[in-house]
Simulated scan of single mutants.
Amino acid sequence: MTNLHFFSLSLLAVVTLTVTINGIHPINVYDFDNRAGSSAGYVRFNREIGVPYARQTLITATYDIWRWFEQYSAAQRKDINRLVLILENFPDSQVQVPPYATTNEIHLNGRYIASYSGDVKREITGVLYHELTHVLQWNGNGRAPGWLIEGIADYVRLRSGYIPSNWVKPGGGDSFYKEYDVTARFLDYCTGLRSNFVAELNKKLRPTGYVDDYFRQLLGKTVYQLWDDYKRTYAG
Rank of each mutant, 00 (worst) to 15 (best):
N3I: 07
N3G: 08
L4E: 12
F7G: 13
S8A: 15
S8M: 11
L9Y: 13
S10H: 13
L11V: 11
A13L: 07
V15M: 08
T16R: 14
T18A: 09
T18W: 13
I21K: 09
I21G: 06
G23T: 05
I24N: 15
I24Y: 09
H25I: 06
V29D: 12
V29P: 01
Y30D: 02
F32M: 06
D33L: 14
R35V: 06
S39L: 14
S39A: 13
F45W: 13
F45R: 11
R47K: 15
E48I: 02
E48K: 10
Y53G: 00
T57G: 06
L58W: 06
D64K: 09
I65G: 04
F69N: 06
Y72P: 01
K78R: 15
K78Y: 08
D79P: 03
R82S: 09
L83Q: 03
V84C: 12
V84L: 12
L85M: 11
L85E: 03
I86K: 14
I86E: 14
E88L: 15
S93N: 15
S93A: 14
V97I: 10
Y100K: 05
T102Q: 13
T103F: 14
I106E: 07
H107N: 14
L108C: 10
N109E: 11
G110S: 10
Y112N: 12
I113V: 13
A114W: 10
S115W: 06
S117A: 13
G118H: 08
G118T: 08
G118A: 06
D119G: 13
K121P: 08
E123C: 05
I124M: 10
T125P: 02
L128M: 02
L128I: 04
H134G: 03
V135C: 06
L136G: 03
W138K: 01
W138Y: 10
W138V: 01
W138M: 03
N139V: 04
N141H: 13
R143K: 13
A144Y: 04
G146K: 04
W147R: 07
L148H: 02
E150M: 02
E150L: 01
I152F: 01
D154W: 00
Y155S: 00
V156A: 03
L158G: 04
I163E: 09
P164A: 05
W167V: 08
W167G: 05
V168W: 01
G171F: 04
D174R: 11
E179M: 12
D181K: 02
T183Y: 03
T183Q: 01
D188R: 00
T191D: 04
L193W: 00
L193K: 11
L193H: 01
R194V: 00
N196K: 11
N196M: 00
V198S: 00
K203V: 01
P207I: 04
T208F: 04
T208E: 14
D213M: 13
D213H: 12
R216Q: 13
L218I: 01
T222L: 02
V223D: 10
W227D: 00
W227E: 00
Y230F: 08
R232T: 14
T233S: 08
Y234C: 08
